[in-house]
Each structure stands twice: as C-alpha cells, then as structure tokens.
Design a protein around this nucleic acid. Structure first.
Lengths: 237, 237
DNA sequence: GTGAAAGCCGAACGATCGTTCGGTCAAGCG
DNA sequence: CGCTTGACCGAACGATCGTTCGGCTTTCAC
C-alpha cells in the first residue's frame, strides 16, 4: 500500500499546482474543471477521484499553503537572537515563499472569500495563527526598542499602533506577488531587505537604530539557510 | 435633453455601485447579471441599455475609480509645502477613498486581470499614473532627507530601493480594505498616520527625523479638508 | 397634444458550467 | 499469478451563464 499512496500523493500535488496556476490567472469562478483537465492532460472526470468537488481543490490548496507558511515562519523565528533579526527572518521566509509559489500566494490573497462559511473559518484560523507570529515579533521589537538600551518617549509603541503596523507589514508582504519581477527587482533578499527597512526604520530615518538594520540583515544570512518549503505532511486540521 | 441625461447618469452610478458590491463579494466571474438585477431591483435586460456587456461594467467601474483616485491624489499633493507632508496627504487621500469605497477598492485590487488585453492596458496606464504620483513624492522625500539640512550617508536612498519602497507603500494601501474595521482600528486619520510613520521612519526609529512626522501630520490637518471624491466628469480616456 | 426616443422587462437562445455514470485498464497486494 | 482496487476517461445531465429579441411604458422636446 506504499507505492500506491505515493503515486496518489504525487497526482494530488500536480493537480493542486495546476489549479493554483489556473485560479491565479482566471480566479476561482473563472477557472473551469475543463481548464484544469487541459492543464494536467487528464480527463475531466479524473479529479473527482482525488477531490470531492471544485471547492475541495481550493480548500486543500489554501490549507496546505498556510500550513507551509506557518511552519516555515515558526522555524525561522526561533533561530534569531533578537527581535530585529526575528523580523528579518520572518520577512525573508515569507518572501521566499512568495517568489517560489507566486500563483499560490495570489490564490491565498484573492480567493479566501470563495469558500463557504465553515471552511472559510478553518482557513481564517490558520491566517490568524500566521498573523500572530508576525505580531509577536513586532511586539517584542517594540519592547526591545530595536536593541537600544532604553526606549525613549518617541520610541514607545502603543498596542493599537502595533496592530496597525502588523497589518501594514502584511500589506507589503501580500502585495509582492503582484509586482515582483526578478530581473528588475532583484532577489528575495533584496525585497526582504526593503520590507524590513520600512518596517523597522522607514525610508529616510537617520538614527542609531539604523545600525540594528545592518546587524540583523547580515547576521541573518548566516542563520537563514534557504528554507526547505516542502509540502506539509498530511493530517487533518 | 438635460433631465434625460441626468437620470441616465444616476442610473449608471447606481448600477456601478451595485456591481462593485456584488463583484467585491463574489468576484467578477462569480457575480452574475441576475445578481445585479436582484440587487438593483431592475430587470435582467435593462443593463444592456446602459452598458454593452458585463465586461463593460467592470471596465468603466475601474476607469472611474482610478480617475477619482488620481485626481484626488494630485490635488492633495500640490497643497503640501514639503515632501513629508505631501506623503501624508497622498496617503490620507487614498485611505479616505478606501474607507468610503471599500468595495470598489477590492475590485481594483482583485479584478484587474479579468479584462481583455486592450482594456487591461488602459487601466494599467491609469495605475501607472497613480503609481508615479507616489513615487515622485517618495523621491522628493529621499532627496530632501526628511527636511533635515543635509542627507547623511545613512539617509541616501538608491533608485532601486526607492522603487521597492513605492511598491511596499502601495502594498500597505491596497491591503487596508481587507482588514480595517472602524470600531477597532479607528478613523482614516489613524490608519493614514500608521502608514505614514512606517514609510517615513519605521516602527521604532528614534532620530531627529521623527520630528518631521508630527510636523507633517499636524500640519496636514489644517491643509487637508475632507476630499470631495465625487465621481469624475465624463470624458473618454 | 404628439411623435420619437429611451428605459425597461419577460422570455428564450445557445453555450458552458460542475458533476455523475458506467465501464476500461493497469498496477500491486496476498 | 489471480484478483481486487483505484486511477482514469467519454459521454451525458441538469442547471445556469451572458446575451438578445420583441414589445410595452414612460418621458421629454417641440
């Protein structure tokens, strides 16, 4: 029963990848099962021995993706010695995922609302877990005051501002798929640095905290081996 | 021929508003003309005396929206004395639009690719014009060095980094529609301040430039009367 | 008042959608 | 090696899609 399951799993992954590309191009309602058939070279009725329905494909696609994102981010964050480096590693992990699975990322951002309420809630739970990882990092960062000995009055960050900052961080991260073009915009590290700088010290700040940037970004290159990003081992949510 | 045209224009706006709500909920392919009929209380065939096709509705919706955004942003930017204030007014203009036309904003972000190539290019031209407004402001900001007398080595910003920063700014702005909830996240000014701060000086920077923040944000409250945001006067692109 | 024009709608058309059925075929376990 | 199991597919079903047709009603210019 081993070789059997392996082939089945591989077929499943192929279908999900083709579905991600098709949904990314036409949207969930715009993609037809016939498109998926043409893209995979399989017959139309084949998918229904792997998935219960078209909606099932979308759901498992999103669930797998968030599983991978959460696991990759959690591993990255635990490797860092300070909050600024944690932030960089979180961003780097996310950017790597986006550039390697652009279609999936587009689906995550666009098609969350296409699921029926029950399954939407399951995905939302995953999304909140991922959000929490980032918020905790930003919270630690605000408390540490960017590694400076003591936070000045200007450096204090209210809880509400922190939540807004987290949303804004995800805004930057969730938009990358739509504009990044490797030849003109550079590697994942270049993008990650830009997001990290804006989040940490903005575009033009000239201050002692700016040194923490270089420290975090250079330090992380030695810590952050390219994440494996393999699909999650199965298991119901 | 005046009262006639006025009623026609009002009907057109009502249809576009209902279409924005419907497309925001179900996506462009998910919205049906029958949904639109139910939402407006009109018959199914009525829309084809106002628009040539379903696609036409989407196109004009996006065109009107970008016209409004560009005009509102251009007006806001010209009112500011320095780059930091220009940035705040641009952000504020955008945030106001998002919070008042959340459905439209969602359509702009999600359904750009649903148009055929020719019309997609027209929308893209508008998008690039809007992008250019923001990039010019950030460029001026990088050159001015946040109002400080001279830019230090740390304050210099390369062109490539500037473009990435612009994309990241739009990432924050284009994500707001998906999370903002007035009772918990405050007014448009609160959101605009958060985005402005991250873009300018980041989350935790403690430096002289931070003073430019307060100056720009307080100054702008006297300059920035709530933008009119009325629909654009017609006229072919 | 009157004629032309425009908004409006019920009904229907062809196309295409997600899904199912019945059966073929190859592969892997006992 | 035989047999079961599951991947696979052609064909078809009912539903629903965007769009059109023909005619009815309203309304503004003259």
């Amino acid at each position: 029963m081993n070789a059997r399951a392996a082939r089945g799993a591989q077929s499943r992954v192929e279908i999900l990848e083709a579905a991600a590309a098709a949904i990314a191009r036409d949207g969930y309602f715009g993609m037809t099962m016939r498109d998926l058939a043409r893209a995979t070279g399989k017959g139309l009725a084949t998918f229904y021995s792997h998935f219960e329905s078209k909606e099932d494909v979308l759901f498992e696609l999103q669930r797998d993706a968030f599983d991978t994102l959460i696991r990759s981010a959690s591993e990255a964050v635990t490797q860092a010695p300070d909050a600024a480096t944690q932030l960089y590693l979180f961003i780097s992990s996310h950017v790597h995922y986006v550039l390697e699975h652009r279609d999936v990322m587009r689906v995550l951002v666009h098609e969350a609302g296409a699921l029926p309420p029950q399954r939407r809630k399951k995905i939302r739970k995953l999304k909140e877990a991922y959000f929490a990882v980032a918020r905790d990092v930003l919270q630690a960062l605000a408390r540490e005051g960017c590694g400076a000995p003591a936070a000045s009055a200007l450096g204090e960050v209210a809880d509400a501002e922190l939540e807004l900052a987290t949303y804004n961080l995800f805004g930057m991260l969730n938009w990358i798929y739509s504009w990044h073009h490797a030849p003109t915009h550079g590697s994942a590290a270049d993008v990650a640095r830009s997001v990290h700088r804006l989040t940490l010290c903005g575009l033009v700040a000239r201050c002692p905290d700016r040194r923490a940037l270089l420290r975090a970004e250079t330090l992380s290159t030695s810590l952050h081996r390219p994440p494996p990003l393999r699909p999650p081992q199965g298991g119901d949510l």
